[in-house]
Design a protein around this nucleic acid. Structure first.
Lengths: 329, 329
DNA sequence: AATTATTTTGTAATCGATTACAAATCGGAA
DNA sequence: TTCCGATTTGTAATCGATTACAAAATAATT
């Protein structure tokens, strides 16, 4: 492997000059610059970034941690994140937890060992306690999930408004017994959406019934259990909100195979708006999140933070617009 | 940021000793080892991996390049790849091309600049020409797509057998006019599956008709166009094989909204077996690929290669088992 | 031509680890 | 005690870049 030293020797200049050429230092005389570039091309030289990174104490690498990869919701965020990193000239490591908590250490250690300069946590991929120990020392951005009291920027949608709009849509269609299949975690987005949901009920004069709310994982069996559980309590349901497209697809599946005792005329509105909403039969009405942009913006914010000189900026909530897409359900 | 030097000073030993402790060198006396470990803990010291990587000329990082992320087919491969990297103590960078060819350079440059030690190309994320220039100099593994004449290991399923089995299933059910919606690229897997398909036809005494084969992208509009094109030529179709679950879901969608002029009793078998096959209505009969294992094995092979002393091993085709999963279509 | 100012290049320290080799320490045998 | 070998530790070079500072080369000024 050719090094800068060999290039210097071949070009009859010092390593400093070669380095200057590599970094486009305008101080080098055009003649020498050309000579050096010539040699670089001839030798097919590429600088060793391990050395550069060490010297500059910067890896130009960021990490994005996702709960999982199998949900298209996350892939879309990751796609935006990759694009942002590319545009800003950074490398990005996309890591997933897959519900094995200890894997998170791998990614956090990248910060601690200088392999990465900053990190984006998507959804509930990290606990508040851990976050607290990180935000002071490292650059952290949150994506889709807000942690009150944590001093880190958060990029998300207005979940309360989204919950309100989703519920209002069902109410508009005349549904009044609306169940809410929330996400599994007690996250801020779930809480905010429920708030919005309540507000819509309230506005329509429909009493709020807590029995109609339950958390469920992105697993068919789990969703089925939850819905049947609510129905088993004798609750009449004519509308359902789900936290994700996948959950909604499971509801449809359950209805179809009659393992969920709902008529197929129940109103169904989901969150996310991934391609899943378009391949189910019937297709899903959903609150479409700007997933790509959420990923893109998160990484941009993080990199801005890394490059900004003063460390004490707003660190607020950055809300991106969502919209209701009415399809067949 | 604390360095090894400061640890050495605090512990009243040399940096060499600290380094030995960090690397579990059995030569250090237990007493000093404990003393050093104590200081490391007190100072909350973490070694700077940028320095270590430079010195050892190894980043313990590999790259996996995927055509895209939006297809669950690839996410599942990526999931396996991540697990393998984790198990082997490597970092992995998952990169997607998203049909912007120039992005590939980003990942290849990681090899050239010592940021990564090896690379896995999934599907047709790289051209044969480029591959040829890479395999001699770098460690390369191919995943799901084989390039004859290229000296790199390839992890895939037996596509010919899979094509045969898929077609045979439709024939078994009495279908004889079987269209094949191949992948968009002129890849080896497409060719192999078509070979198997032909073999099944041949075995059943059904004449092969090239008009029934067409490539299509993973886009609804494109699949619709292709299928309607075949039908427009007056071809009677009572069975369809698709290269992916997504394509099959588009066929179902087209049938349902009558934008594809097929009866809903047409036999449909897809490849992949992602979760998509389970959320469509009806659910998809498909050739299930061991996607997670394909990703896992690819990365393992790559790392083995990196760690192996002799560079000239078999480099052959590693075939993983697939199976036909009969669902509703 | 001599002096100064400016441009261009080179020398050497540095980033933070690893590791070959040398040196110190220790224990036991003569 | 003295010497030898084994164990343990330290010194310093090294990885390949960047960069402050010094030095050389060139241009401008008197």
């Amino acid at each position: 492997m050719s090094s800068i030293k060999e290039v210097a020797k071949q070009a009859h200049v010092s390593v400093a000059t070669v380095s200057r050429v590599l970094n486009n230092d305008p101080v080098v005389k055009p003649a020498t610059k050309n000579k050096v570039l010539q040699v670089i091309k001839e030798m097919n030289y590429k600088p060793n970034l391990l050395a550069k990174n060490l010297r500059k104490q910067a890896s130009r690498t960021v990490v994005m941690v996702l709960p999982s990869m199998s949900n298209p919701y996350f892939s879309e965020i990751a796609r935006g994140a990759q694009a942002a990193a590319y545009d800003k000239g950074y490398n990005i490591i996309i890591g997933t937890i897959e519900s094995k908590r200890w894997i998170l250490d791998t990614y956090i250690n990248m910060l601690k060992t200088n392999l990465a300069e900053g990190i984006v946590f998507v959804s509930s991929s990290v606990s508040k306690e851990l976050l607290e120990t990180l935000v002071d020392e490292y650059s952290v951005v949150l994506c889709t999930e807000y942690y009150p009291g944590i001093n880190a920027a958060c990029v998300a949608i207005d979940n309360k408004k989204a919950g309100y709009e989703a519920a209002r849509e069902l109410i508009r269609r005349g549904h009044t017994h609306i169940a809410y299949i929330a996400g599994s975690s007690a996250s801020s987005s779930v809480a905010a959406r429920i708030e919005g949901y309540k507000e819509a009920l309230n506005e329509a004069g429909i009493p709020f019934r807590p029995e109609l709310i339950a958390g469920a994982k992105n697993k068919f069996e789990h969703v089925k259990e939850i819905v049947n559980g609510i129905l088993g309590q004798g609750m009449q349901i004519d509308g359902i909100l789900t936290h994700s497209d996948l959950q909604a697809s499971y509801v449809l599946k359950g209805i179809k195979e009659k393992s969920i005792g709902l008529s197929d005329e129940v109103g169904l509105v989901s969150f996310d708006g991934t391609f899943v909403a378009e391949i189910t039969n019937p297709t899903l009405t959903s609150i479409v999140q700007p997933l790509y942009d959420l990923g893109y913006t998160s990484v941009c914010k993080l990199i801005e933070k890394l490059q900004g000189e003063s460390g004490d900026e707003e660190e607020g909530l950055i809300l991106l617009p969502h919209h209701l897409e009415v399809r067949e359900t």
